[in-house]
Computed example of a mutant assay.
Amino acid sequence: MTTTLLVFTDLDGTLLDHYSYDFSAASNALSSLKTLGIPCVLNTSKTYAELLELRQALHHKDPFIVENGAAVYLPVNIRLDTDENLIARENFLIKPFGPDRKQLIELAQAMKSRYDFISYHELTPEQLVEHTGLDSHSAELSLKREFTEPLIWNDSNIALERLKQELASEGIKLQKGGRFVHLMGQNCDKAVAMAWLKNAYQKTFNIAVTSIALGDGENDVGMIKQADIPVVVRSPVHVPPEIPGRNDVWITDSYGPQGWSEAINQALIHEGFI
Rank of each mutant, 00 (worst) to 15 (best):
H270L: 14
G69Q: 11
T4N: 07
Q226V: 15
P244N: 13
H137L: 14
L11V: 02
V237D: 14
P244I: 12
W196K: 01
M223Y: 13
E146M: 12
T35L: 15
G177S: 02
G256L: 04
V41L: 12
L6N: 03
L16M: 05
L52G: 07
A168H: 01
I207L: 05
T9G: 02
F64G: 00
S261L: 07
K95N: 03
S24P: 05
G133I: 02
G245A: 04
E140I: 03
T210H: 12
Y115W: 00
Q127W: 01
Q202R: 09
L74Y: 10
K173M: 09
V209M: 15
V237Q: 10
E140C: 02
E130I: 14
V181G: 12
N68M: 08
T14C: 07
E166V: 01
V41W: 13
N265A: 03
H59G: 09
L15M: 06
P39E: 12
S156Y: 07
E161T: 06
L74P: 09
H270F: 10
D155Y: 03
G245F: 08
G37F: 05
W260G: 07
L93S: 01
L123R: 02
I212Y: 10
G171M: 01
E53T: 09
E149V: 03
S113T: 10
V76D: 08
G222V: 15
I212N: 09
W196S: 02
L214W: 12
L174K: 02
I207M: 03
G37H: 04
Y48I: 02
I229K: 11
Y48Q: 07
I118W: 08
A227F: 10
V232T: 07
Q186R: 11
E170R: 00
K190H: 12
S254E: 15
F205C: 06
L42N: 04
V209Q: 13
G98T: 04
N91V: 02
N43Y: 06
L6C: 04
D216W: 01
A108T: 02
G245I: 08
L52S: 11
Y19M: 05
S138M: 13
D81N: 10
I207F: 01
T47S: 10
G272H: 10
A195K: 12
L33I: 13
L183T: 14
L214F: 07
V249P: 01
D17G: 00
I78S: 08
A168D: 02
F180K: 04
D135F: 00
T252K: 02
D62H: 09
R79Q: 15
Q165I: 00
S235N: 05
L183P: 15
E53H: 10
F273Y: 15
E161M: 05
T148D: 15
Q165D: 00
Q56C: 14
P75L: 06
T9W: 04
E262S: 02
E218A: 14
A108D: 06
P96G: 00
P75I: 06
I87H: 01
K176G: 06
K61L: 14
K164N: 09
N91T: 07
G222F: 15
Y73V: 05
R101K: 12
E90G: 03
A191R: 06
A110R: 14
D17C: 00
V237F: 11
L141H: 06
P39L: 08
S211R: 12
H270N: 07
L52W: 10
L54K: 05
S254I: 09
D248C: 00
T148Y: 14
F64I: 03
A71Q: 08
A139R: 07
A200W: 11
P236V: 05
P257L: 04
